[in-house]
Computed example of a mutant assay.
Amino acid sequence: MRKLWNKYGQVIAYLFWGVVTTLVNIVSFQFLSSGVHWNYQVANVTAWFLSVLVAYLTNKVWVFNSHYTTWKAFWIEISQFFFYRGLTLLIDMAFMFVGVTLLKLNTPIQELMVKIVDNVVVVVANYIFSRWLIFKDNEKIAKR
């Protein structure tokens, strides 16, 4: 069991916290879009921001065990995290635009379904960015 955890623990932790982050994103979006009746793109960006805060904290602490020893290292790490999450926000916004505006999937349940499929694509892209670009060189960054 320990051998499996050592091999796949990071992916399992990422998937668990990814589900939590995705729920924050979807619930926030649904509440703001359908409950408060905000424009779907405004609701989407607000939900993105909330979920990125959750994602940064959980990825840093429980997924990639990121440690830094200087404020400079912290700012580099968090800047990279938000930068790459910003790239996936653009994917997210484009996906929502195509689904809701162009394909006219604009009832509350249709918007929710577009958002769920959209999140699958975004989670995969976020893992790639986090694993190989953001948290890969924490020790090198910390020593700068």
Rank of each mutant, 00 (worst) to 15 (best):
N65P: 05
S130N: 11
A125V: 06
R131V: 02
W5I: 13
L32I: 06
V63L: 13
D92H: 12
L133Q: 06
W48A: 09
I78K: 06
S34A: 15
F29V: 04
V121M: 07
F82D: 02
A43T: 04
M1N: 09
K60H: 15
F31Q: 01
G35D: 12
Y56Q: 01
Y8E: 06
S28E: 00
M96Y: 05
S79W: 09
V27E: 08
T69E: 13
L102H: 12
I109N: 05
S79D: 08
N65M: 07
L89H: 04
M1C: 04
R85I: 00
A13M: 15
V20P: 06
H67P: 02
V42D: 12
L112D: 01
Y127F: 15
H67G: 03
V24E: 02
T88K: 07
G35S: 10
L53Y: 03
T70D: 00
S66Y: 14
V20Y: 06
L90C: 05
S79T: 15
K115F: 00
V24T: 15
M1P: 10
T107A: 04
V124P: 02
M113F: 10
K104L: 12
Q30D: 06
F49D: 03
V98M: 07
Y127I: 02
D118V: 01
V121S: 12
D118C: 05
Y84Q: 00
F83D: 00
V20L: 13
E77G: 12
F74C: 01
V122K: 06
K72R: 14
K60D: 15
I91C: 07
M96H: 03
V54W: 07
L112I: 02
V11S: 14
V24P: 13
F97I: 04
Y8L: 12
R2C: 00
G9Y: 13
F16D: 10
L53K: 02
V45F: 11
V52H: 05
I116R: 03
W132E: 04
N119H: 11
D92M: 03
P108C: 03
N44G: 03
V124Q: 01
D92P: 01
